[in-house]
């Protein structure tokens, strides 16, 4: 526990010291929302909820891939060796997942804020939508952290990151889109419990598989 806390704090400190990356990321979200807004420009009011929802999740997907991709890429060879001697691999993967979740929560809610400002807010059950967004951040963070660990070992890792992560993140994304559509339409919450439980189960699978597999990845 102590180890994880330390590692998360270290990630936050590093991010804060090197604010260019963080600012770049936040700008990435804002400018993609802006591009979408201008793309739909005059017809924003005529936008159907399903398009609103899909476009929002796609922006979020790309922003997440970009923000998590650097979590292993930015580590230099020497630093990795240093961690290797200090921490257990389980501690490192948990800390990374936790930190990336925090990062994606910031990205997701900032994105949502700008998206609502520009594209209007058709969400009828807003608290549920926020819960789904948080679940999505956790899910994206856990899947993408592991994939970025894999991609960081290979050449042309930025392309690889997208190629490896999109297909395995799709089931989660489809689930998220479905539940958030329910929230958008203000359907009764009991209709969404099944999907939310499935999402939690998926997150659990991904996190436990990462926990089991990361030591092998780390050792290579």
């Amino acid at each position: 526990m102590f180890e994880i806390q330390h590692l998360v704090l270290k990630e936050i400190k590093l991010e804060w010291r090197n604010r260019a990356a963080l600012n770049g990321l936040l700008l990435y979200v804002v400018s993609s929302v802006w591009v979408v807004y201008l793309g739909f420009s005059l017809t924003v009011s005529a936008l159907s909820p399903i398009i609103w929802n899909t476009v929002f999740w796609i922006i979020l997907l790309f922003a997440s891939v970009n923000s998590v991709a650097k979590s292993f890429l930015q580590e230099s060879e020497g630093r990795v060796l240093y961690y290797y001697t200090l921490f257990s691999p389980q501690g490192i993967i948990f800390a990374k997942i936790l930190y990336n979740t925090l990062l994606l929560l910031v990205v997701a809610f900032l994105g949502l804020f700008f998206y609502i400002v520009l594209m209007g807010n058709p969400v009828q059950d807003f608290p549920l939508f926020c819960v789904i967004l948080a679940l999505g951040a956790l899910g994206f963070a856990s899947t993408l952290t592991m994939v970025s660990g894999i991609a960081a070992k290979a050449q042309n890792s930025t392309t690889l990151m997208a190629v490896l992560s999109f297909p395995i993140i799709l089931p989660m994304l489809l689930m998220l889109m479905r539940v958030s559509k329910n929230a958008l339409d203000g359907l009764d919450r009991s209709l969404s419990t099944d999907e939310i439980l499935t999402l939690l189960a998926m997150n659990l699978i991904v996190i436990s598989v990462s926990y089991l597999l990361f030591p092998y990845l780390w050792r290579s």
Binding site: I168, M202, I205, V209
Partner: peptide, 9 residues
């Protein structure tokens, strides 16, 4: 292994 675990759902 990771891919198979996500393939099942």
């Amino acid at each position: 292994i990771f891919a198979f675990a996500t393939l099942i759902p």
